[in-house]
Design a binder for these strands. Structure first.
Length: 587
RNA sequence: CGGGGCGUAGCGCAGCUUGGUAGCGCGCCUGCUUUGGGAGCAGGAUGUCGUAGGUUCAAAUCCUAUCGCCCCGACCA
């Protein structure tokens, strides 16, 4: 456990306010922490867990959180958005009106007040802001307008995990814009997109904006901002040649026209016990790309047969779009068999005994001499060919892209897949909420017009964890300069034994504070090794050591957190190093 | 929600199979020594063994229930 003295001084006053900052570091990694960010934030004394998915921000962690908030706030203000603060507790009526009281499911934490009225803890604030807008905005002259807040949200996650990364309670910046028309929304959308680019750049993060799916809610455009990290929960796709990037739900790749092979004679073969594509390929001695597999899904209420090349993966989101329904799910084995009359594992598109809609992925139509199920137990077809043996069904993009696929935007590039942590999302809501909640204003001709909306989120607390995921080493955190709880750490070695060291460290601290740096002075009566280990763990970008040896040479000992060597510098050089910005950004 | 695992001192863990009244390391407190990469010696404090029942002369240990936490899964026919 560490108490470091944090001194704030006032230039010429004798009065000096000294306070102490509580930094309870842990030598050992708590068993509950899986992710590096979770481990290091616990060990560095930044956060403590209260219950599953609920964390207390300790003094050091709160300083980081405030840094993130400040940057986000500055960029939002700069973009013209106006800050408000809406309640966490929200009345059920609003959610019933938007239809989400039923739709949201158990993630929405519901509660009753003493009068037995229903409320919920806000997982998001579309309903509240919509209610505000319809009460207060009456004329086209008041538009466009963009409101934002930095507020605690609550989502009762199925499985909270990874510390701050997927908590139940978390802090989010959310913004909602209102417009007369889509053109106006498009302008604000771009403004927000640019603001996010600046925000995440200032936060010192290696990030990528990717095209995203709009989901059931519709709307035209949507981008997610991902921090690149191996531990990311999301797969993001990007081109190695142009700036195309999309998430896995959205990414597409053109289906190359494959050379048509000379057709072979079709045949039914016995394939007892086959269940999977891999088994089918092995038994028949073909590659899985020569199989057209049949996947039964339920779209809305209707069973649908989807065809994919054996080595491709179905993307349910794309299927939902192609079938023009909100949601597509895998059929149960019972549903699949009753819809086709064929046993699971042997279903195929040829000679169907039932009327069922069939939709193929583009790539499945490029295969010749392929194998499929024969709609009969233990039997498959081989050497089938489209047109000759069965007619071509409708086709759509149904598959997940894979690394190495060609880019849809440029001819030269190929797609790669990386992991990302979603820290931001900009989204065109369109008129979904404004219609449901009747947000109308009078237009220039005096007629009621339904407004168009956009919404824009940043996971503020998640950014803290994402930053650690991207910036750490075996000794601890390495904060980007813009997020570090302090700019500089001063380590006073053997300050008790050498009063001149204590005095010099204190004086240096004061001068650096006056120069505009925030400084953490470690004047604990600890061994140097303990002090260094603490400093490394909590990850301040700059460290200055004050010791009797160093004083004797009339220099300071400087080391960047990322560096492995000390540098002896005079004070002017030290100031230059601190002002040079963060070594974190050096390659 | 399904599967698996774990709850013993502030943290990390042993003890449980084969019941006999709780231990190790780190941390914490005191003293001395030490002082450039998580010190050494000596002394000390801290547990209703997650909770509630049950079995037994006796339960951390066996049984039942319950609460909490962690991990995996929840799309490939």
């Amino acid at each position: 456990m560490a108490f470091l003295t944090l001194c704030a001084t006032f230039s010429f006053e004798i009065f000096m306010r000294a306070s102490q900052i509580f930094i309870p570091t842990l030598k050992e990694t708590p068993a509950e922490a899986e992710l590096v960010s979770h481990q290091l934030l616990l060990r560095g004394g930044f956060i403590r867990r209260l219950a599953s998915g609920l964390y207390t921000w300790m003094p050091l962690g709160l300083r980081v959180l405030r840094k993130v908030e400040r940057i986000v706030r500055e960029e939002m203000d700069r973009s013209g958005a106006q800050e408000v603060l809406m309640p966490v507790v929200q009345p059920a009526e609003l959610w019933q009106e938007s239809g989400r009281w039923e739709k949201y499911g158990p993630e929405l934490l519901r509660l009753k007040d003493r009068h037995q009225r229903d409320f919920c803890l806000g997982p998001t604030h579309e309903e509240v802001i919509s209610d505000l807008a319809r009460r207060e905005i009456h004329s086209y002259k008041q538009l466009p307008v963009n409101f934002y807040q930095i507020q605690t949200k609550f989502r009762d996650e199925i499985r909270p995990r990874f510390g701050l990364m997927r908590g139940r309670e978390f802090i989010m910046k959310d913004a909602y814009s209102f417009h007369m028309d889509h053109a106006s929304l498009e302008i604000t959308y771009q403004t927000m997109y640019d603001a996010y680019q600046r925000t995440f750049t200032r936060l010192g993060l290696d990030f990528r904006a990717v095209e995203a799916d709009n989901g059931a809610i519709g709307g035209k455009r949507s981008h997610e901002f991902h921090v690149l990290a191996d531990s990311g929960e999301d797969a993001i796709v990007s081109c190695d040649h142009c700036d195309y990037a999309a998430n896995m739900e959205k990414a597409s790749s053109p289906a190359k026209v494959a050379p048509v092979e000379a057709p072979l004679e079709a045949a039914r073969v016995q394939t007892p016990g086959i269940r999977t594509v891999a088994e089918q390929a092995a038994m028949l001695g073909i590659s899985s790309s020569q199989i057209v597999k049949t996947v039964l899904v339920v779209a809305g209420e209707q069973p649908v047969m989807l065809l994919l090349r054996g080595d491709d993966e179905l993307n349910l989101i794309k299927a939902a779009h192609a079938l023009e329904v909100d949601e597509v799910r895998m059929a149960t084995p019972e549903e699949a068999e009753s819809a086709t009359g064929a046993p699971l594992g042997f279903i195929g598109p040829k000679d169907l005994s039932t009327a069922i809609r069939v939709l193929a992925d583009h790539r499945a139509l490029n295969v010749s001499n392929f194998s499929t199920g024969a709609n009969e137990m233990d039997t498959h077809w081989v050497n089938l060919n489209w047109d000759r043996d069965l007619s071509r069904p409708d086709s759509a993009d149904l598959r997940n892209v894979r690394a190495g696929d060609p880019c849809p935007h440029c001819s030269a590039g190929t797609l790669g897949i990386r992991r990302g942590i979603e820290v931001g999302h900009v989204f065109q809501l369109g008129q979904v909420y404004s219609e449901r909640m009747k947000i109308t204003v009078l237009d220039e001709s005096g007629r009621d017009a339904t407004v168009t909306m956009g919404c824009y989120g940043i996971g503020v607390s998640r950014v803290v964890a994402a930053a650690v995921e991207q910036h750490f080493d075996e000794r601890g955190i390495i904060w980007p300069a813009s997020l570090s709880p302090f700019d500089v750490g001063i380590v006073a070695i053997n300050a008790r034994k050498f009063p001149e060291v204590a005095a010099a460290a204190q004086a240096l601290h004061d001068r650096l504070e006056q120069a505009g740096f925030s400084v953490l002075l470690d004047d604990r009566d600890e061994r140097p090794g303990v002090q260094f280990a603490t400093m490394d763990l909590i990850g301040l970008p700059h460290r200055v050591v004050v010791s009797d040896k160093v004083l004797a040479q009339n220099v300071w000992e400087y080391r960047a957190r990322r560096a492995s060597e000390n540098t002896l510098v005079n004070e002017a050089e030290l100031m230059d190093l601190l002002n040079a910005g963060s070594p974190v950004h050096q390659p």
